[in-house]
Simulated assay, not measured.
Amino acid sequence: MTIFLVVISGLYALFTLILWITWLRVPPFRSGDNVANSPSITVIVPVRNEADTILNLLNDLNQQTYTRFEVIIADDSSTDSTLSIIQQYAQKAPFTLRPLPLTNERTASPKKRAITQSIALATGDLIVTTDGDCRVGPDWLATLAAFYGQTGAKLISGPVTFTTEETIFDALQTVEFSSLIGTGACTMALGIPTMCNGANLCYEKRVFFDVEGFAGVDHLASGDDEFLMHKISVRYPGEVHFLKSPAAIVRTKAHQSWRGFYNQRKRWASKWQAYESYLPSLLAVFVFMSNAAPVVAVGGWLLGFLNGTVTLWVIMLKLVPEFLFLRQILVFLQKKSSVRVIPLTQLVYPLYVLFFGLAAQGKGYTWKGRHLN
């Protein structure tokens, strides 16, 4: 048991240090004034019951410095005034805004359906997806277009974080979410992409059809971002990139309720068994075991099975490299104030991972007022 815990913790420390060094070696992207070829963009926003937030996103899109874009907002049978807000805004918007009301038919993955039907109507060369509760900066699309012009990437993953941290719960979510963004960015840089976020995703429209869209994963409620990324990565090795630019950061609001947080994290955790590539699944299992190690070590020490030195090594092998890595990601995401919360996050995160790793084995969760499997 002692050897197993030390080995797992040592491998996790090595893994985290590799991520940290990789992040430091990825140069920040700085675009010039002109965007090569100026690709046309279709921004797709699947929404359901976003009446309180959609106007903010529309106003942000109205402030974009890049002008070659259209917006399709696929409304998935909202029961509030979301659709009417979009329709009214479309009448005065200086950019092309196309509301797409979707029928309230039963489907395994409402979001994949919304994106697929929107892409069928899209005129842009690039598809950019975000969510109805997000905020974007004025140079968001310009930065994506410039990065595409310089790299020719088939899929671009952009940074995502939360808007403000008003409570300790918000700050904990910010730190935890930064680990996902940072890990996804670094594995892309290493040529083995594992995760991304659909709140800030860009890909060529033709590539979506080349990989047959969500075919093969359309029976899964989640994964409109990661499963598509994996399909594109297999078809176009080395053509999936992370956009390391503050101008490209998309911000969304942290969950205010434990129930909403639980359902989202369970939805995310439930994806790992469905990956066709062994790497994301292997990473999920490895992270689960690495976070279980300090819990087991502390338990073993309290019960007298492990000595204090071994327990301390297991804990420090996790905490120190993790702190270095998370700090860098938070600074990039302009969340330096959340750095002080890293130790608290590290304290609760092992229990969090164990809980959701086990919870994900059960089927079903509630999302946007619907029960999905």
Rank of each mutant, 00 (worst) to 15 (best):
R251N: 15
G137H: 12
R113T: 14
P193T: 00
S38R: 12
Y66I: 07
S40C: 09
W20A: 05
T16I: 09
L333S: 06
N291R: 09
V7F: 08
M188W: 03
C202W: 04
L5P: 07
A189M: 02
L141Q: 02
G308V: 15
L19G: 05
K271V: 00
Y66K: 03
T309Q: 12
Q361F: 11
Y352P: 04
A51Y: 06
W313F: 15
F323Q: 10
P110T: 06
A189D: 05
A153L: 00
R340H: 09
T174V: 13
M195L: 12
E276I: 05
A221L: 00
F323W: 15
M1L: 09
F356Q: 02
M1W: 04
T123G: 08
Y352A: 11
E212L: 13
F286N: 04
G213V: 08
V175R: 09
S118Y: 03
G10A: 06
Y148M: 05
S9I: 04
I54T: 08
P193I: 01
F69R: 05
W272F: 14
K111T: 11
N56L: 13
L243G: 04
I41T: 02
S179P: 08
N291F: 15
F162S: 14
A51N: 02
K363F: 00
N56P: 01
L279Y: 13
R68W: 01
S118P: 02
L100T: 05
L324P: 01
K231S: 07
T194H: 08
G182Q: 04
I8V: 14
L228F: 09
T2Q: 11
I41E: 02
W140V: 11
S38N: 11
I329N: 04
G369R: 04
P343Q: 10
S277M: 10
L180M: 08
F227W: 04
N62R: 10
L312D: 05
T366A: 00
G182A: 07
N104I: 11
M188I: 08
I21F: 13
L14Q: 08
A359Y: 03
